[in-house]
Amino acid sequence: MSDPSDREQTAATPDELREQVEQTRAEFGETVQALADKADVKARAKDKTAEVKEQAVAKAGELKAKAAQAARSVQDKLPDQVKHKAAQTADHVREKTAQDGSVWEKTTPEPVRQQAAQGARVIRDNRKLLLVAAGAAAFAWLAFRRRKG
């Protein structure tokens, strides 16, 4: 607040006294406000929550970028023979799925079809994440295979 040497000095005029009183009031007000800010646990918790949320969003963005980079890296390292075989397999799966689709619709009860449709929507909505996971799994498999061999 004020320095003890300030108290020892005497004000020569009423204006100086008023100035000292105003300065003391201002210092006291700042001190009270600082204490009130420290005592406002709810506001401090909100600030901390916002800070943590901001950090989490930033970290999620970093992780997403790293995962995408890893997926690109895996795809770049896959031999053309593997890519060709994967494309052939995908075509075969599409054909087989189309054939089995009609059998599925004829024999499956409606509630089961609705659950399956909901699961398919979830997969479609998270397609990028699933592709990144598949790429990372392929990369891990290739790395394990190279170490083993």
Score class of each variant (00 low, 15 high):
2 S>I: 12
2 S>A: 12
4 P>N: 02
4 P>C: 01
6 D>M: 08
8 E>A: 14
9 Q>P: 00
13 T>I: 06
15 D>R: 12
16 E>G: 01
16 E>N: 01
17 L>T: 10
17 L>A: 13
17 L>Y: 08
20 Q>S: 08
21 V>E: 12
22 E>K: 13
23 Q>L: 12
23 Q>D: 13
24 T>Q: 10
26 A>S: 11
28 F>I: 00
28 F>H: 03
31 T>S: 11
31 T>A: 13
33 Q>C: 02
34 A>H: 02
34 A>R: 11
34 A>G: 01
36 A>S: 12
36 A>N: 11
38 K>L: 11
38 K>G: 09
39 A>R: 11
41 V>W: 01
41 V>Y: 03
42 K>S: 15
43 A>W: 01
44 R>E: 08
44 R>W: 02
45 A>W: 00
49 T>N: 15
49 T>A: 15
52 V>C: 00
53 K>A: 12
53 K>N: 13
56 A>W: 10
57 V>T: 09
58 A>F: 03
59 K>S: 01
61 G>Q: 09
61 G>S: 06
62 E>H: 05
63 L>G: 00
64 K>Y: 07
64 K>R: 14
65 A>K: 11
66 K>H: 09
67 A>S: 08
67 A>G: 05
68 A>F: 06
68 A>I: 07
69 Q>M: 12
69 Q>K: 14
70 A>H: 04
71 A>D: 05
72 R>C: 03
72 R>H: 09
72 R>A: 11
72 R>P: 00
73 S>C: 03
74 V>Q: 04
77 K>E: 14
78 L>I: 03
79 P>T: 01
79 P>S: 02
80 D>G: 07
83 K>E: 01
84 H>Y: 14
85 K>C: 02
85 K>T: 07
86 A>G: 04
88 Q>G: 04
88 Q>W: 05
91 D>A: 07
95 E>M: 07
96 K>M: 15
96 K>V: 15
96 K>E: 15
97 T>K: 08
97 T>Q: 09
98 A>R: 13
99 Q>P: 04
101 G>C: 05
103 V>F: 08
104 W>S: 09
104 W>P: 01
105 E>V: 12
105 E>K: 15
106 K>E: 09
108 T>K: 06
108 T>C: 05
109 P>M: 00
111 P>V: 02
112 V>L: 12
112 V>Y: 05
114 Q>N: 15
115 Q>K: 09
116 A>F: 05
117 A>S: 12
117 A>C: 03
118 Q>T: 11
122 V>C: 08
125 D>T: 03
128 K>C: 01
129 L>H: 15
129 L>M: 13
130 L>M: 07
132 V>K: 05
132 V>Y: 09
135 G>C: 04
135 G>P: 02
138 A>D: 08
140 A>F: 11
140 A>K: 14
140 A>V: 13
142 L>R: 13
143 A>H: 10
144 F>K: 15
146 R>V: 03
147 R>Q: 08
149 G>A: 01
